[in-house]
Design a protein around this nucleic acid. Structure first.
Length: 788
DNA sequence: CTAGGGTTAG
């Protein structure tokens, strides 16, 4: 047993002995050996000095034995600032910020380590402002920052793009002589890079005397952030050594900028040419690249690697796998990974991708099941579900979901949500709902993006309010895109404002906005509605020669329509025979419709036969052919067609019309006897009928089967669904109010003529949206000038 | 006792 004097002399050696023991116990994470060392230290008395005891406290703290650490600290008769700092760091490491703050305030003295520990703690929790505030307090308390302080404070500046503060810190760094410290210099570089000061960042980089891998990585990151992928790649080539971060910067950068093939190339080079093992960032980005390029086979290989190395699929990697399989259409695989990984380890983004995968396959029900199973929903997943319904044509479900989102869940929609619901509203042509959404958009969005304006234009146009559509278009002048022009051109064309539509198209060309294939559909339909055959031909040529657009079947259908309606039936047939794509049902249907208008039964027969060859169940073909025969007075043949229709049980779409009064939609079929107001409606129609006949209206009884009693013929015409809807509208709206009627089929000749008279008789504007376009009736005339 | 570079997925 050594005496007291020996102990003092041996102190230093003994200290080293205990410290190395403590470090080993920390390294192997063995709390029991720590306890036994602790016992030995007590046994030998606390003469070893604070250095050893502080070390003991630290090891306890780092192993998570906070109460043991505190106990040793509390029992210390004499403490130095390092003892206090050690406990402080124990609190901050455990994320106990409020405890750390009150401990920090209790400290008798604070040095740069104490302050820095607090700053680091704030940074770790993302409280960048608090970190900077504490830094300025530190400086005014006359405590000098060290290199650790600077790296962290510069990190805070970069995170919140506080360039001005960052510059001040920079001058401080220079003053205290830390510029040559590579860690501090790298932090400066990154601060400037994040604050979008590329030149300052480059200057810092050039001035670093001993650049390390991180310095180079910082520059690569800078270039990737600015989208200069080539420069980033060049720098990467120049590097003498590269680490996983260098590789990941390239992989994620290429992925983010759409160079997904390159990203996968780099990923495979890393696997092949280096010993670097891909981490979760590399795997997630590579999988994302597979998703974007729909490269399942590489995606499966990466999945295989993940399985072989039993890589943890919780979090980023699992989410990326699910997204990859969903976007590649392998929804079952994605679903399997959800089950294997466990729902709680995955996030809403992965589930949104899965939901979307089902939507893309047209499986709306499983998509809804996933949606319902989510514990937490954000605005994006609500929107994805909504878009699913819209694309599926389930507009009522879309409306119901939107209500659920707004009212029951209180989720705030964004511009994508609003554009999606507007698309449903457009299909339902519900002006009231559309106006409500417009109001929501004005209330909650700071600025309306072009996409939303376009949805609004579309909605107002489809709901019959062309004036509002024009207003939105003219107000969105700063952020107009090609789709805005297209939406407006189509809107004008649908409303029969063909000259305006074409004028707008010319404007669009002058503004150097590039029309696409849809723009041209709008242009052709405008030409058709106005009978502008020559313009139509010219634009058809321009589309191919100037804008390099290959005509699609819809363009051809428009052209056939244009020629046919103008009476150039043989030219239309010639067009079909020479058109660049295989003639489809719509092409022959257009010709057939034209034959009906121009009473050409021979050609109608050719068109109908061809149409039925392609689409044998097309009820429209039969009735169009029958109508064409009727129109030429060939009753027997017309009856023959109708008979064969019955024989073949071909269904003809039932015509109906609807009108919205307040928030309710009232639908009417032909001879609708079910409506509660039927007597009043029929009486009013009777009265109107007499009045308009006095004004010169002649019922188009030729369009009805010929072998009926004339009285009965009139009766049938009188009770067409659009006329009933108008009578109902007149009964239930204030005087002078505009009536907006929708019809699922095209308006018939007789109704078109009758409504003109009605508009004059009751002095109302009547807007009728039929299957293809709008008719604005006012003062006895229609906006289509009887050409439709 | 305190620290610097890369953070994916709808």
């Amino acid at each position: 047993m050594a005496n007291a004097g020996d102990r003092v002399i041996c102190g230093v050696a003994e200290s080293h002995h205990y410290i190395s023991l403590l470090q080993t116990s920390l390294k192997i994470k063995d709390p029991f050996s720590t306890k036994s060392i602790h016992a030995q230290i007590i046994k030998s008395g606390l003469h070893l000095g604070l250095f050893v005891v502080n070390n003991l406290i630290n090891v306890y703290a780092k192993l998570g034995y906070t109460s043991d650490a505190s106990k040793v600290f509390d029992e210390l008769p004499v403490k130095n600032i390092s003892s206090w700092n050690t406990i402080l760091s124990a609190y901050t490491r455990g994320g106990m910020i409020s405890e750390a703050v009150s401990f920090f305030n209790k400290m008798p003295d604070r040095d740069s380590v104490s302050w820095t520990t607090m700053i680091v703690s704030y940074n770790r929790s993302g409280f960048w402002d608090d970190a900077l505030r504490l830094f300025s307090k530190m400086v005014s308390s006359q405590v000098l920052p060290n290199q650790y302080t600077f790296t962290n404070v510069l990190g805070s500046c970069g995170a919140i793009r506080e360039l001005d503060v960052g510059k001040m810190v920079h001058s401080f760094v220079i003053k205290l002589g830390f510029v040559d410290n590579v860690a501090v210099a790298n932090s400066l570089l990154n601060m400037y890079a994040k604050s979008r000061s590329a030149n300052a960042a480059k200057m810092v980089f050039e001035s670093i005397p001993l650049k390390d891998v991180s310095s180079w990585n910082g520059m690569i990151s800078l270039h990737m952030q600015s989208g200069e992928v080539d420069l980033a790649l060049t720098l990467f080539e120049q590097m003498k050594e590269r680490d996983i971060v260098s590789w990941n910067l390239l992989i994620t950068g290429c992925n983010q900028h759409g160079f997904d093939v390159k990203a996968l190339e780099i990923f495979s080079t890393m696997l092949k040419d280096t010993k670097i093992i891909p981490d979760r960032y590399a795997l997630a980005s590579a999988l994302s690249a597979c998703a974007s390029t729909k490269n399942v086979s590489v995606g499966r290989q990466i999945h295989g690697h993940i399985v072989r190395t039993s890589f943890n699929t919780s979090g980023a990697v699992g989410n990326a796998l699910i997204c990859m399989y969903s976007r590649c259409g392998c929804v079952e695989n994605a679903h399997r990974i959800v089950i294997q990984t466990g729902r709680s380890n995955l996030n809403v983004i992965a589930f949104t991708a899965l939901l979307d995968g089902y939507v893309k396959l047209g499986d709306i029900n499983p998509a809804r099941q996933i949606f319902d199973s989510l514990a937490e929903r954000d605005v994006v997943v609500w929107t994805a579900m909504l878009v699913g319904y819209v694309q599926n044509g389930s507009h009522n479900e879309a409306m119901a979901l939107f209500r659920l989102m707004m009212i029951r869940d209180g989720e705030k929609p964004n511009s994508y949500t609003l554009a999606a619901i507007l698309s449903s509203i457009s299909s339902l042509a519900s002006l009231n709902h559309g106006k409500q959404i417009h109001a929501v958009a004005i209330r909650i969005l700071e600025a309306s993006p072009a996409s939303l304006d376009n949805a609004l234009i579309n909605m107002y146009a489809k709901a019959g309010n062309i004036l509002y559509a024009k207003k939105i278009f003219s107000l969105s002048h700063q952020r107009k895109d090609a789709i805005s022009w297209t939406s407006m051109i189509i809107a004008l064309a649908q409303h029969g404002l063909a000259k305006e539509a074409i004028h707008l198209f010319e404007n669009m060309l002058e503004c150097d906005s590039k029309p696409d294939h849809i723009t041209y559909v709008g242009v052709f339909s405008a030409c058709t509605h106005a009978g502008l055959v020559e313009d139509g031909r010219r634009y058809y040529k321009m589309m191919q020669e100037v804008h390099d657009i290959v005509p699609t079947s819809s363009h051809c259908a428009c052209m056939i329509d244009l020629l046919g309606r103008a009476g150039l039936l043989h030219e239309a047939l010639e067009f079909i025979e020479k058109m660049p794509v295989e003639p489809d049902a719509i092409a022959w249907g257009s010709l057939l419709a034209a034959c009906k208008i121009h009473k050409n039964a021979e050609l109608a027969k050719v068109a109908a036969e061809n149409l039925l060859k392609i689409d044998p169940d097309n009820g429209g073909a039969y009735s169009a052919l029958a109508n064409a025969y009727s129109a030429c007075g060939r009753w027997r043949e017309a009856a023959g067609v109708r008979k064969s229709m019955k024989l073949k049980q071909v269904k003809k779409e039932q015509g109906f019309s609807w009108i919205q009064i307040k928030n309710e939609v009232h639908a009417f079929g032909v001879e609708d006897g079910l409506h509660p107001q039927r007597d009043a409606i029929y009486q009013l129609m009777e009265k109107i009928w007499k009045e308009i006949k006095k004004m010169g209206y002649i019922p188009d009884t030729d369009s009805v089967l010929h072998d009926l009693d004339p009285e009965l013929k009139e009766q049938i015409l009188k009770h067409h669904s659009e006329k009933l809807a108008i009578a109902f509208g007149l009964l239930n709206t204030p005087e002078n109010a505009t009536l907006r009627i929708m019809k699922n089929l095209r308006v018939c000749n007789d109704c078109h003529s009758a409504i003109k008279f009605i508009s004059k008789l009751v002095n109302r504007e009547i807007i009728l949206r039929d299957a293809t376009r709008f008719h604005h009736f006012q003062g006895g005339v229609c906006s289509c000038r009887d050409y439709w």
